[in-house]
Design a protein around this nucleic acid. Structure first.
Lengths: 339, 339
DNA sequence: TTGAAAGCGGTACCAG
DNA sequence: CTGGTACCGCTTTCAA
């Protein structure tokens, strides 16, 4: 590969001049510029990001750091949407995107290394599952004062941003919609393994129930884990144990995945959705619309969360004043046939 | 951040010695090594990947280059699984993983740049949708002789590898299973927009039909695109137009997504699956098991494809002899309730 | 076994 | 407006 000196020689100018052309720096003779451009094209010259990073002490790369206990967790469409959002921003600003996926509990330093080795300038962070309770890694990151944007989790720090979805409001609106439709016994379905954003969803549900004076009819169905099977098992157990009079007529599920499990369990008992049991999910993952009946759900703006997080970090790196360190993106109730 | 000189000074040795310790190079006095290690730990020293890449002329990074016409195409679980596979290998070998996502038709140079700027040493490439027909970008990559591993597409070149799934065999086995179950009128559902791996699936279907002497009963249902809606529309049209006697009793769909659309369309017409119409998909995406009835389908080994592709490239970079430039991974018929 | 010095490919400073 | 030169942090000769 040609380097900057080759270009300078071919164009009959100094290295510095070539560098100026590359970086769009001011005034030089148009014809000089022309000659340089031509030389670059002829030699198929591309400046080395490595050398540039070396000198500038910045890699022009953003990291996406995520931990998910599931070894194939990356297949969750949520991550794909976040990545697509990140990618749209990094590409527009000529940054590259480095992904760092830890399928197990993150250990100390795991998320620090990419910064320390100067692989990335800043990172979007998502810690899922039970690990979300384990805040040590996050604290470490925050204290290291590398720029980070954390998804679905509150952080406080000089160089830390939070990008959140309106989980509380979404769950509250979904529950309210069920109440408005005449339901009184509404259950909330989650998992025994909970995490911060889920707590907010539950709070939103509880608030709507309380406001409607339905507090005493609150029912919780807690499955063993965040799989469809887990959701199905919880519903199955609940429906077989309770007396008819206390059975819920509607369920707000804390995620679409467990809602799908619930849907199958409800149908397996010969109940119709939504006539015998209304069901609302959360996330609006791609296949929510393709289950039978199509799932009413609360849309989580995953793509936008990725986009926003990347923008916050890029602005930070450019020294722009941060108007907000904490961004909350709206959720939206998507009405389909299951409620 | 501390640099190698700081460490050398703190340990009272030369820079060279520190470098030797980092790179596990032979014999030095154990106590020297000990001192160096301690200094590294105390200073939280991590060697800069940038500087190392500069000197070694290699970034120790693998790229995942993909184009998908859908702006949120990355949300497709296929990519997530591939990424998880890639990630498992890169992490094990201390490589980093750079993702380069082009939501539009790749233009000349788009996939060359990350190599030329020395961001990555090698790349896994996937070109989807109609773009898959547009081989210009791929040819360009192959001729550039940067190491690449292309998924689901045949390439030939000194530094190019192909990682393929047994699409033909999978579709053939699925069709054969339907024939064995007594079906005679079996349709193949795909899209007017086809691409290489889909052609193989269709060929597999045709072969099974021909072998069973059922060639004359072959029916093709071609939807407008690769969405569930597209699949549903094709089935809807076919079922409403044909006479009962020529209607298929089973459908082999070219992907799970369109199979899901087909499933909804079939049920919407009041037909039961599998009694009135058997249905087999292709891919085994995560939610194939959660549709109603659970979808019989052919599993595409996406995770393994990612893993294998990364391994091929890493071996290539280490100068290991390539035992094979073309890897075909097995598919597997997953029997559920829809057939 | 350890140390000094050159150089990877850019950018930034300083003169001209 | 352009040219020379130091330097980013590491690896790699070459000497001691």
């Amino acid at each position: 590969m040609a380097n900057i000196r080759d270009v300078a020689e071919a164009a009959g100018v100094s290295v510095q001049t070539v560098s100026n052309v590359i970086n769009g720096r001011p005034f030089m003779r148009p014809e000089t510029m022309q000659r340089v451009r031509q030389a670059m094209a002829e030699l198929h010259y591309q400046p080395s990001r490595v050398a540039r990073g070396m000198r500038r002490q910045s890699s022009q790369a953003l990291g996406f750091l995520l931990s998910d206990p599931n070894p194939r967790g990356l297949a969750d469409p949520f991550y794909g949407e976040v990545l697509a959002g990140l990618s749209s921003v990094t590409r527009a600003h000529n940054y590259s995107l480095v992904i760092n996926y830890l399928p197990s509990l993150p250990r100390s330093g795991d998320f620090l290394t990419p910064f320390e080795t100067r692989q990335i300038d800043a990172a979007v962070v998502f810690i899922s599952g039970i690990a979300a309770r384990q805040t040590a890694v996050l604290r470490e990151l925050v204290r290291s004062s590398h720029p980070i944007a954390v998804l679905e989790r509150e952080v406080k720090g000089e160089h830390a941003y939070s990008v959140l979805a309106a989980n509380y409001e979404g769950a509250r609106a979904a529950t309210q919609a069920l109440i408005d439709a005449g339901h009184r016994r509404i259950a909330f379905l989650d998992s025994v393994q909970r995490w911060p954003s889920i707590d907010l969803r539950r709070n939103g549900y509880e608030a709507a129930m309380r406001d409607a004076g339905l507090g005493k009819h609150i029912a919780f169905l807690s499955g063993p884990d965040w799989t469809a099977e887990g959701g199905g098992a919880a519903v199955e157990r609940a429906l077989s144990q309770r007396a008819v009079k206390t059975k819920p007529t509607a369920i707000v599920a804390a995620s679409d995945v467990i809602a799908v499990g619930a849907l199958l369990a409800i149908k397996a008992r010969g109940l119709r959705v939504p006539d015998d049991m209304a069901l609302v999910g959360f996330d609006d993952f791609e296949f929510a619309r393709y289950v039978d009946p199509p799932l009413t759900t609360v849309r989580l703006p995953a793509f936008e969360m990725g986009r926003r997080a990347a923008e916050l970090l890029l602005n930070h790196l450019r020294g722009m004043p941060a108007d907000e360190r904490r961004v909350v993106l709206p959720t939206q109730l998507i009405r389909r046939k299951s409620s």
